[in-house]
Design a binder for these strands. Sequence first.
DNA 1: TTGAAAGCGCTAACAA
DNA 2: TTGTTAGCGCTTTCAA
Lengths: 333, 333
Amino acid sequence: MTSIRAVASAAGVSASTVSRALNNPELVNAETRRRVLECADRLGYRPNRAARSLVLGRTSNVGLIVPDIANPAFAPFIKGVEAYFRDTGYGVFLADTDEDADTEARMAEAMAERADGLILCASRMPGMRVRSIAAKTTVVLANRLSRSVPSVALDLKPGIDQAVTHLHALGHRRCAFLSGPRDSWSNRQRRKHLTAGCAARGIELIELGPYEPQFTGGYRAADEALAADVTAVFAYNDLIALGVLARLHARGVRVPEDMSIVGVDDVPTASMVSPPLTTVAVPIQALARAASAMLLDRLRADRSDTVAAAPPPRPPAPELAARLLIRSTTGPT
Amino acid sequence: MTSIRAVASAAGVSASTVSRALNNPELVNAETRRRVLECADRLGYRPNRAARSLVLGRTSNVGLIVPDIANPAFAPFIKGVEAYFRDTGYGVFLADTDEDADTEARMAEAMAERADGLILCASRMPGMRVRSIAAKTTVVLANRLSRSVPSVALDLKPGIDQAVTHLHALGHRRCAFLSGPRDSWSNRQRRKHLTAGCAARGIELIELGPYEPQFTGGYRAADEALAADVTAVFAYNDLIALGVLARLHARGVRVPEDMSIVGVDDVPTASMVSPPLTTVAVPIQALARAASAMLLDRLRADRSDTVAAAPPPRPPAPELAARLLIRSTTGPT
DNA sequence: TTGAAAGCGCTAACAA
DNA sequence: TTGTTAGCGCTTTCAA
């Protein structure tokens, strides 16, 4: 391993000059800099990150914690965060929590040691736990809003309103909400907007569930929706909606003639089944960018010792707005 | 930040004793150790990783590089690696290369600075490039075999043989291979086993493509397969197979009555469409474990300065064997 | 069983 | 514009 001293002696300067040439090139004579850079290059010098971190007090790493890597609704989020940080000089740690709040807390603590900041996606932790971690390291919450911790979330309202209007226009007057994890932030959001939308348009809304937010969760949901005598269902997510579709197909119920289905997320599978699924598409990559940008901002703010003022809670950004994607699982009643 | 010295003075011992109590408890008096541990705990002491890395010369991090996080065939791999390292004390860096060899090389170089070892999944890099990176850091290749670099790969042969036998038993005598990325390691493997299997059983095999290994790549493939007058297609992967299925459905061709379809991977979507897809299921989580275990092994070998002998190239492990999953897209001709 | 001291590779005052 | 010096927090000889 070539150290900075090796480069220094090769270039006939001191270690500090090498350090400056590399990190603050404007502080060093052009000719000297050229020579140093040339030597560093020739010797294949790679700065030792540990040493750098030690003296600087930062790692240039960030951590990303998600409930389930294999969940197709999160994959683009991970990809978006990766892409965002790819050329920032930050490394990205990833951890999966298996949807478990305790694992999430453990991983967050572990990552706090290795990274300068964390993005918690769809966090399952109780607010207190989140705050306690946020007290130790820079945290950004994605897809969950909090008053005390910087956070960004999707704006489901426009998409859900469109879905309700769509169903209403098709003549549906009695619908079901196929609920996901009862008390999760996402589920509460979705229920809230849906309830409001249906009330505003005079649609009777029945809540069914909770169902496991998976394909197979949709099987049970389908049967119960049929029994509840509704003409359309609004699923917590696409996975449930897809399960409903499959189950109805198996039971010989026609979609959308006998039952309309709306999902949320627009996972890739939604457009691969037939009939393709009508769904509330969610700009998950935009969420990833927003969360990443927010974290990077705060990290930079931490460096320049400007007292990092809490960012003003912003109104829902238009790029985070969900919108209805009408495909073929919704039709007139 | 509580440092080791703070703990030391709280416990009335020296820093070295604290270090020992933490890392080599057997070297310190039981009572002293208890006191040190108690103080460390009380002060909320967290060792500084940078300092540790600096003196130890290792980071306790590993890197994982995949072509595409959002590809459902890789997601379980990432998840498997995460899960494997979760309780080993290693952090896992993740990078996505957008299927690009240059990006892959760049990310690998960047990660080599931050991690002790790397897992390269389905690497797109030319062999030379891989070796040059393997010369600088510990690397394990997943889903690609190499003579010079430690590697593990799935064993497609059993699954493909089963698929060929299955198709033969159903009466198919003229089939098409819908090829993926022409010169990728995966594609060559699949073609090789398929060609051999078909030859052995007297099935005429036509190669079509290459197709983009995506859902929409399957559209074109479907039309060309129809024109080629085959009774069954063997797709490079499930995504293509799913696209074929959708396209045939749109063209009014019945599956499996008029055309049988076999995919590879067993992505979740394969079981969500109707008819559900017959596919060669691939134990991707087992691959993840195998690759992780191999990397961890080599990392430990590097530490104990036993001259790390190259591990003997092992025969394909049974847990890495693919197998046919017969669902409903294959039937008698 | 413990402590003192040296040093991992780097950056940042401070001095020149 | 450059060099000297003093650490960053930890582990590990070496001596006691």
